[in-house]
Nucleic acid binder design. Sequence first.
RNA 1: GGUUCCGUGGCCGAGUGGCUAGGCUGAGCUCUGCAAAAGCUCCUACAGCGGUUCGAAUCCGCUCGGAACCUCCA
Length: 498
Amino acid sequence: MKLYEQYPVFLTNSLTGKKEKLETQIPGFVGMYVCGPTVYNYVHLGNTRTFLSFDLIARYLRFLGYHVRYVRNITDVGHLVGDVDEGEDKIGKKARLEQLEPMEIVKRYTEDFHTVMRQFNILPPNIEPTATAHIIEQINIVKKLIDLGLAYEVNGSVYFDVKKYNQSHHYGILSGRNIEELMESGRDLDSQDEKREKIDFALWKKASPEHIMRWPSPWGEGFPGWHIECTVMSTKYLGETFDIHGGGMDLKFPHHECEIAQATAANGKPPVRYWVHSNMLTVNGQKMSKSLGNSFLPSELFSGNHKLLEKGYSPMTVRFFMLQSHYSSTLDFSNEALNAAEKGFKKLNNALTLIKSLHLQKTAVNTETEKVLLQQADNCFQNMSDDFNTAKTLAVLFEMASQINSWAAAKQLNVSEPVFEKFKFTYVAMMEEVLGLKEETGGNNELLAGTVNVLINLRKKARTDKNFALSDKIRDDLKAIGIQLKDGKDGEMSYEIE
RNA sequence: GGUUCCGUGGCCGAGUGGCUAGGCUGAGCUCUGCAAAAGCUCCUACAGCGGUUCGAAUCCGCUCGGAACCUCCA
């Protein structure tokens, strides 16, 4: 029996608003697509949270035994800056500002993105396609939509006919809108021009003379519209209908709504079985975003070099911090919360280090304890399978950490070997493989360890001689440079680098 | 204005009808030469007002407060 059969996954489907059992199209296989970053700038912490959320989902599904194909794109064609403005594109704009080739911009920020992903221990997707590598496919689907009569060309640009699509389908199915309201609301656009209705969206845009990124097409030189790349790349690698489509909450409308419309129109069936949206990271209750000026970069967070930060925090501390809340809830950022997370993570991290090296003497087996431990191990899976509830899982891991500490203190094992092994396996696997919380050793190396051991031995001698002034000085001085000595019961000492 | 979501103890944050969330902080105890770490114990909340129910933080209604989306955004 596979783990995914033993612990079937339930996830909240944004399409229905309900928690549903994951029934994949092909048993044992999961196709998942997540909207990746637009690489026209450094990714900030808010962006990172989304990728972390889906990293977790991919990790857990794989852990359960699913064969996961995880596709996360890189948007290297700028989305349109305004709605129907001059056809300006973010990447092109930045490129002109900096006097660079667009692809130079793309490369720089793609590399930054990958670096950040690595720092947070976010695993790479199986396929990371770029929009610019799929121009032909995008043109083809636009052609197809025109042939189907659901798109129209005006002056070298092509738009999707939402009103027409809505006659046979529901545009707004995902975000709970109807097109009458959409057509009434919203601001009146200054250059309301070529589109038949303002809710129509661009599939292909004609490139203005100064527009740098451009490709030839049946409609002249231009570039793909905002939403079409995701439809093309997801269906190319995962099929016309695939299991999970993820992305940030802010992409639900219009981006994902448009994806559904395009794909459904082109292929005659809905593209996605389960839509999953991760919520925003907030600062003082407000969405972290570049335009609000309340965002910060991962590097600033690590170094503490930012006006909103009191100090720096390690990548795993930040990862832990984010895992303490559910992906579907907003998470508010604060120094206080980060400090709490730092301590909490340290506790779990210490237990992780400990359990890997525990040597315990067997004593009488306590069957009650065994029951509790097996229940804890089981709960980890139950919680994760319940819409990837990392917060609840962490709560169990804290209980498990207490158990580990107790064992270490007693040096005795009061459960049977198989129970211990299962417990240990679950704790280590949940921490490292599922939650991706890597052990942080704090710049440990052999030379340092040897040096500290010399000092530890000197201090042992001092303590035996009751020379507490000296032993305290050794401890205090080491503490001052960030090494905390801990005295064990039987005269042994350990240390921890802070 | 429209659509949707949220409001939990000092702080963060789980929780979808009855059972201790958990972390951080604070207090006490144990261990310790003193610390640190660890263990144990305590601080028992659910915006307000109504309603449904034997029973609601959890369901319904209203009020107040906050947020996201409706325009590029993870």
